[in-house]
Amino acid sequence: MRARFLLSEITIGLRRNMTMTVAMVITTAVSLGFLGTAILFNQQVGVMKTYWYDKVEVSVFLCGQDSSQPSCAAGEVTQAQRDEIRSDLDALPQVEKIYYESKNQAYKRFKEQFKNSAIVDNVSPDQMPESYRVKLVNPEQFPIIASAFAGRPGIDEVQDQRALLERLFEVLKWVQWFAFCLALLMVVVSTILIVNTIRVSAFSRRRETGIMRLVGASSFSIQLPFLLEGAISGFVGALLASGSFVLIKGVLVDRVLAPNFPISQFITWGDVWLSGGVVFLVGITLAAVASFFALLKYLRV
C-alpha cells in the first residue's frame, strides 16, 4: 500500500473518532506521566539515599559529668579510656575514618545549629558530650560497632544516625509503591481505552475493511492503519509525558527545589532521559499490545 494513501486513511480514521482519539491520547499521556513521575521519584529517593548515607556517621559519645548510663558510673571518661577506645576503633576494618569532637567543638556546633534560640545561653561547653565520629566503609555495618562498644566503661552511648534516616526512607518506600501502583493502574486503563478506541474505529470503518477484504487487500494493509492509529496515540502520549518530565526537572527541581534545599542532591538530566525512554518504550509497547488484541478480536481478516 502506498504511503500517501495509507496516510489519508489514518487521518480519516483519527478524525472520524476525534473525541475518542483525544481521550485516548490524553489518557495515555497522563498514565505515562504517572509512570515516569514514579520513576523520577524513585531516582530522587535513590539520589538522596546515596547522598545522605554517605554523610551519616556513628557517634560514640563518651561519658561526661552528667552521664547517667551504668557504663559511666565511674564518672567522666579518663584519658586512658579515651586512648583505648580510639585505638580499638582504629583497629576495626569496617571503620573508614574517625574524627574526635571535643566538648568545645560540640559546643560550637551546637551554638551554630541553635543560633537563633535562647537555649544556647543556658548551655556551657562543660555540659556538651565529647565524642568520636566514626565513618564506616559500609554504613550498614553499624551493629558491629554497637555490639563492640556499647556499654563499655567510658562510653555513654553509641548512636547510629542512619536509624533516623531509615524511618524517613521507610515512609518514602511506601509512597513509591503507591505511586507505582497508581501508574500501573493508569497504564491498564489507557490500554483498555486504546482497545476500545480501535474497536470503535474498526466498527465505524467496517464497510471499508469489508471492501478491502473483498478486493484482496492483504491482512497487513487492512490492519496497518489501525495499528498506526494506536501507535500514534502511544507516541504522542509519550511525547506529552516526556515534556512534563522536562518541566519537572527544568522548573520544579532546578528553579524551586534545588535553591531552597541545599541539604540534598537532586535528579539529573540523565534521570529525566531515562524515564523519558522508559515511557516511550512502555507507550509504544502498550499501543502495540492493545492494537494487537483489538485487531484479533474486532478485525478478523
Binding site: 471492501i211 484482496g216 492483504s218
Partner: peptide
C-alpha cells in the same frame, strides 16, 4: 480474491467517495 471479483445486491459502495474514488479504492488497497 484478487482473481475473483464480487458484486452484491446492496452494492456496498463507500458513500463518502466519488464514483471514480470508489473504483480506484480497489486498486489502491492492493
Amino acid at each position: 480474491r484478487r482473481q475473483v471479483g464480487t458484486v452484491f445486491q446492496d452494492f456496498r459502495l463507500l458513500n463518502n467517495k466519488t464514483v471514480q474514488e470508489n473504483v480506484a479504492f480497489a486498486l489502491e488497497v492492493i
